[in-house]
Design a protein around this nucleic acid. Structure first.
Lengths: 204, 204
DNA sequence: GGGATTAAGTTACTTTGAGTAAGTAAGTCT
DNA sequence: AGACTTACTTACTCAAAGTAACTTAATCCC
């Protein structure tokens, strides 16, 4: 049959890709969400309706897959956080909302989050760093701009960004592994720490 | 030859173990420090002077190995931090010293740190949580005791502990992956954040 | 003192999953 | 029509986790 749509094996020259990179990543997300972070490349290929070499062609290696998924998740979180954290307007309440959105987004993408923060065997936790960079960079910029705005030394920005991203990641993991406690409560507590510091507000 | 020391294969009944659990873990640390976090169980067995099944017998599985090494590292860090973080005596300077000791300890055990925070493929980042627990628990106790002492609400202790441990871990990874910047500087910046909060000290 | 027993190992396997090489069908170009 | 190209597949290799089954030396007991 010359039906152009139903061809399967052995493919054309000027033909379009059946599954492009995005579709592979979509499939990876779906199967990770469903089966957990322990999925194999084969599982992902099957979910995408292709075979393993296609996944390697589109994505690269396993760790590149993790990186790509991490980028997507980080972007999703940045987007979800929206403008809760814009320069001049920052406040403890805004920070709490930002953190809450982060927690909720993580809980909505729990397995994916565990997958990308789980690291990639070989390069271990350096993968986790790479994951975080996508979050650290915007955070660095936000802090720097904001400190500039208040004439405070912006040199601390990158260190602070790493610390804050690390705190949020760990709280997210810890929280999702726990029996239910409202995200808002946790977010407020973390915001309290990050805004007022360990000694707490001057008077209370 | 009845030389009791030189026996190798096939071993006795009432005899002592040639390598106990501790020796296996020691060997694992050595080979990880030398070869990086990508070592196999076989590599560890060889370093310990035995074969793979012995490692499994003494330690359990690969993830149990990671857990055990994590406990050791966490204990080492708690010990190294010593009494920098004792209840009543806490201050921004004490906190900075505590953080600096943490950073230095991590850099002295870099590959091991990457190994244990790298997670264990299967259970991914939940392993990282388990790693952290050993650090979170003492931190929780310290914070709770300290807040009690100042009549502040101690309910935030566990959340804060998770946040702080996460911040320290991420800063440590980020810092060790960087070109040289003195640990003391980084520690002071993190202490500044955790003590004074994002807006900074009242006057400055 | 000489078997049965048992502890402490080893060798040799199975299994799983990452990554790749080589083949094959459907189209395009001339 | 035949040469070429592209988009895939099948079928492998290789490494590493985990396990089963065997081997040897000491001890126990009579």
């Amino acid at each position: 049959m010359g039906v152009t749509g139903a061809r399967r094996p052995g493919r054309p020259a000027g033909g379009q890709l059946v599954v492009d990179r995005e579709r592979v990543l979509d499939a990876a997300e779906r199967v990770i969400a469903r089966e957990g972070a322990g999925v194999s490349i084969d599982d992902i290929a099957i979910e995408a309706g292709v075979t393993k070499p296609i996944v390697y062609d589109r994505v690269g290696s396993r760790s590149e897959l993790a990186d790509a998924l991490a980028e997507r998740l980080a972007d999703r979180m940045v987007k979800a956080a929206g403008d809760t954290l814009m320069e001049g307007s920052i406040s403890e309440e805004a920070l709490a909302r930002f953190i809450e959105v982060n927690l909720v987004t993580v809980s909505q993408n729990r397995e994916l989050f565990l997958y990308v923060t789980g690291g990639s065997t070989e390069q271990t936790a350096l993968g986790r760093l790479k994951v975080a960079e996508r979050s650290i960079d915007p955070m660095t910029l936000a802090i720097r701009a904001w400190r500039d705005h208040f004439a405070a030394d912006p040199k601390v920005a990158d260190t602070w960004a790493a610390a804050i991203v690390g705190a949020l990641q760990m709280v997210a993991i810890w929280w999702t592994a726990q029996s239910e406690r409202p995200a808002r409560e946790i977010a407020r507590q973390v915001a309290d720490l990050l805004w007022n510091g360990l000694p707490g507000r001057p008077e209370r």
